[in-house]
Every structure is written in C-alpha cells, then in structure tokens.
Design a protein around this nucleic acid. Structure first.
Length: 204
DNA sequence: CCACGGATTGGCT
DNA sequence: GCCAATCCGTGGA
C-alpha cells in the first residue's frame, strides 16, 4: 500500500515562503514536464539557493535586468537561463515579490519518461549503468534531459506545462548541506542542499 | 579514478 | 571585451 500520498501540485503558498525553507523542502518533490500525453518526471535530489539581496553569486545581485526579471516576481515561476555558451539551467522562483530569490535545480532522479530523457541526452535509448546515472546529475543535464530551454522562461508552476508534485517532507537527517558548486563569489554560503546517499547527486 | 582546460553564446560593463 | 549557477574529453596515475 505505497503511494497513498496524493499526487498534488505544490500550491503557490509553498513557493512564496523564505528561500532556504523552500530549497530544503523541494528535496524529494517531483519535477514534472508534460508533453501532450507524455510526461517527464524526476525526484529533486539536489538544489542551491540564490538570494540577490545578500548573495553576490545570484543573478539578481546587480539589480533588475531583462534576463533576471522573473526572479523579482513572487514565488512559483520558472527561471531558465543559458550559460557557458551551451547549457540551460532551471530554477524555481521563491519568496515575495521584489525579493529576487530562486532555487537552482541541480539534479533529479529520473522517474518517468526515461526513454525520452535518454534520447534527449545521448540520442539513444539503451544506456549503460554509468550513462543512466549520468542522465540528470547536474543542472545542465536536467535541462537537456527534460528538453527545457529559453522557451520555458517564466512558466507559472501552478499551471499545466511544468509543475512540481508534493511528496512527504524529508527528515533533516536525510539532508546534506554544503557550499555551492561552480561559483566564484559568495562561495562560503552553505546554501547547497542534497539528499544523503542519493546516486543522482552531482557531487559529494 | 582524478585533474585540467577548451568549447561557445549571450549578457552586461 | 570579459566571463559565466557547466559539461565533456583527454591524459596521466
């Protein structure tokens, strides 16, 4: 009798809370992208928080620009950006209007639509064990596997295209905390959260 | 297994 | 013009 937990979308009120609370509680929740009848889904296993009011690494630290404007909305929107000339990364906007905070989704564990993800990532369906673990264990990889691009910028996460399903809250003993990865500013902030011992986490 | 560096676009100074 | 919230291939242990 598993899965009695109703598969409900996270409501607006989940996202409009404090960013660090939302970041931690996003762990274990299920990111879903609908493509007609098909559906891609993955359990969120690694995130990072970015808060432009005190965090030099956040895209909103410099103030409003065309790229980061969605981060100044209240929580519940999707912020997608392009980086290193090659990769998209996706974020969940959090907090109240004008705060400029968002949570980067750094890794998920594939749950549904794995063939589609395999095609998107490696242009084939049969994968080695190593390739399976390599499907969605990084922010650029998540977007490539899910087919998330600039066209998904600003999506309302309480809508039907992309949303996040509720799941039971993890115990604090299942959550690891560390410094963030791949940044050069505000490197000391312990704002990376990931699920302990999950094989899809990008890096110990 | 690990460390290193190149690729390549677009955003901002 | 500088450089990035990354990824992957290469080369050595």
């Amino acid at each position: 009798m598993k899965n009695l937990q109703p598969l409900k979308k996270l409501p607006k009120s989940f996202y409009t809370r404090d960013i660090l609370t939302v970041a931690k509680e996003l762990l274990g929740k299920v990111l879903v992208k609908k493509e007609g009848r098909a559906m891609l889904a993955g359990k969120i296993v690694e995130v990072e928080a970015y808060d432009g009011s005190i965090d030099e690494a956040a895209h909103t630290f410099i103030g409003r620009t065309k790229r980061n404007e969605i981060m100044f909305n209240e929580g519940g929107y999707f912020y997608v950006y392009f980086t290193y000339g090659a990769h998209f990364c996706c974020n969940v906007v959090t907090g109240k209007k004008d705060h400029g905070t968002a949570v980067l989704i750094r890794a998920v564990e594939p749950l549904a639509g794995i063939k589609r993800m395999s095609l998107n990532r490696f242009n084939k369906i049969l994968l080695s064990e190593k390739e399976k673990l390599n499907l969605t264990n990084g922010p650029g990889k998540v977007c490539e596997a899910f087919g998330i691009t600039k066209g998904h910028y600003g999506i309302d996460l309480t809508g039907e295209r992309i949303f996040i399903l509720d799941r039971p809250k993890l115990k604090s003993s299942q959550i690891e905390i560390s410094k963030r990865i791949g940044i050069k500013k505000s490197v000391e902030l312990p704002w990376r959260f990931y699920i302990k011992d999950n094989p899809y986490v990008s890096k110990k």
